[in-house]
Amino acid sequence: MAKLQKSIDKRNRLIKATIQLVNNNGFHATPMSKIAKMANVSPATIYLYFKNKQDLVNQTYIEVKAKYTAYAFETYKNDMPIEAGFKLIWYRIADFKLKECENAMFLAQCDNTPMIDEASRKEGIKHLQPLLDLWARGKKEGIIKPLSDYLLYAYAINPLSFLMITQKRGDFQLDETHLEEAYQSAWGSIKVCK
C-alpha cells in the first residue's frame, strides 16, 4: 500500500510540476528534464507514468479539465431552469478560476495552443456535457441564442479567463459587483432578447 501511495505521489508531483512550468514558461520551454527536477524525480521516472511529453501534457490537461468541470457542476441539477442553471454553473466556473488559478491558467494555455492533441480535446469537451446539454435545452426552449456551442463558450465563459489573468497580474481586482456585472454581460450575450 505504501508503495502504491509513493507511486501516486510521484505522478501527482509530475502533474503539478508540468502545470507550474507550462504556466511560467509555456509548452515549448518546458523540457522533461525541468519537469523531473521540479517534481524531484529522475527523468527516467517520467516514462514510468507517461509515454512522452505529449502524453504528459495531454493527461495533465484531461485531469485538470475533469477537476474543473467536477467543481463547476457539483451542485448543478439537470432539471434546473435554464437561467438558474447557467448562473449556478457560471459562478462555479468563476469561483474555480479565481481559487484554482494555477489550474485555470493551465487550461487557458491549453485552449490556445495546438499542443493538446485532438483526442484529448474531445475528452476534455465531454467533461463539459452538462453545460452543453443545458445550452441545447435552452436553444430548444427559445431562451438561448441558436449559436454554435463554441460561440456561446467564447462569449459567456472565456471572458472569465481574461479577468482571472488580469487579476493575477494585479491590474484589476474582481469584487462581488464586478462578478455580477460580468455574469450579467455573459448571460446577456447568449440569451434570446425578447
Results as ranks from 00 to 15, higher is better:
residue 93 I to T: 11
residue 25 N to T: 07
residue 142 G to P: 12
residue 59 Q to Y: 02
residue 134 L to Q: 06
residue 107 L to H: 05
residue 147 L to F: 02
residue 105 M to P: 08
residue 158 N to F: 07
residue 162 F to A: 09
residue 142 G to N: 11
residue 106 F to P: 11
residue 118 E to C: 12
residue 123 E to N: 14
residue 47 Y to S: 10
residue 76 Y to I: 05
residue 165 I to E: 09
residue 77 K to D: 03
residue 33 S to C: 04
residue 42 S to A: 13
residue 102 E to R: 10
residue 166 T to N: 04
residue 127 H to L: 01
residue 113 T to L: 15
residue 28 H to S: 08
residue 179 L to T: 01
residue 12 N to Y: 06
residue 145 K to E: 07
residue 3 K to W: 03
residue 135 W to I: 12
residue 111 D to L: 15
residue 156 A to R: 01
residue 155 Y to I: 03
residue 81 P to Y: 11
residue 65 K to F: 01
residue 4 L to G: 00
residue 48 L to T: 03
residue 170 G to A: 00
residue 184 Q to D: 06
residue 33 S to P: 00
residue 81 P to A: 07
residue 168 K to S: 02
residue 24 N to E: 08
residue 2 A to P: 03
residue 18 T to E: 05
residue 84 A to H: 10
residue 72 A to D: 04
residue 44 A to N: 14
residue 57 V to S: 06
residue 148 S to P: 02
residue 167 Q to P: 03
residue 7 S to I: 03
residue 131 L to G: 02
residue 138 G to A: 05
residue 115 M to D: 06
residue 35 I to D: 02
residue 20 Q to Y: 12
residue 14 L to A: 11
residue 81 P to E: 01
residue 54 Q to W: 09
residue 18 T to A: 10
residue 183 Y to W: 14
residue 46 I to R: 04
residue 26 G to A: 09
residue 150 Y to S: 09
residue 82 I to P: 09
residue 151 L to G: 02
residue 139 K to R: 15
residue 115 M to Y: 15
residue 30 T to E: 01
residue 108 A to I: 02
residue 27 F to D: 05
residue 186 A to L: 09
residue 145 K to A: 14
residue 166 T to I: 14
residue 7 S to Y: 08
residue 114 P to W: 00
residue 126 K to W: 00
residue 75 T to P: 01
residue 109 Q to G: 01
residue 93 I to G: 00
residue 42 S to K: 12
residue 168 K to Q: 07
residue 18 T to Y: 05
residue 182 A to Q: 11
residue 45 T to M: 02
residue 125 I to Q: 09
residue 5 Q to R: 15
residue 117 D to C: 09
residue 63 E to W: 02
residue 134 L to F: 01
residue 101 C to M: 11
residue 136 A to H: 13
residue 125 I to V: 12
residue 61 Y to C: 00
residue 3 K to H: 05
residue 57 V to C: 00
residue 109 Q to S: 10
residue 53 K to F: 10
residue 23 N to S: 13
residue 55 D to G: 06
residue 43 P to E: 15
residue 90 W to D: 05
residue 187 W to M: 11
residue 34 K to I: 03
residue 78 N to Y: 08
residue 97 K to N: 10
residue 189 S to Q: 08
residue 7 S to D: 12
residue 80 M to L: 15
residue 75 T to N: 15
residue 151 L to A: 14
residue 18 T to V: 02
residue 168 K to L: 03
residue 172 F to T: 07
residue 150 Y to N: 10
residue 153 Y to E: 06
residue 168 K to N: 05
residue 142 G to V: 08
residue 104 A to T: 00
residue 183 Y to H: 12
residue 190 I to P: 06
residue 12 N to W: 01
residue 18 T to Q: 01
residue 93 I to H: 05
residue 48 L to H: 08
residue 30 T to W: 09
residue 194 K to A: 14
residue 68 Y to G: 04
residue 67 K to G: 00
residue 39 A to W: 01
residue 41 V to L: 05
residue 6 K to H: 06
residue 189 S to V: 07
residue 127 H to V: 00
residue 102 E to K: 13
residue 86 F to H: 06
residue 36 A to I: 02
residue 23 N to D: 14
residue 128 L to G: 04
residue 148 S to N: 15
residue 164 M to Y: 06
residue 128 L to C: 10
residue 44 A to H: 01
residue 164 M to T: 15
residue 38 M to E: 05
residue 30 T to A: 07
residue 129 Q to V: 03
residue 16 K to S: 03
residue 31 P to E: 07
residue 159 P to N: 05
residue 120 S to K: 08
residue 37 K to T: 08
residue 82 I to W: 08
residue 163 L to R: 04
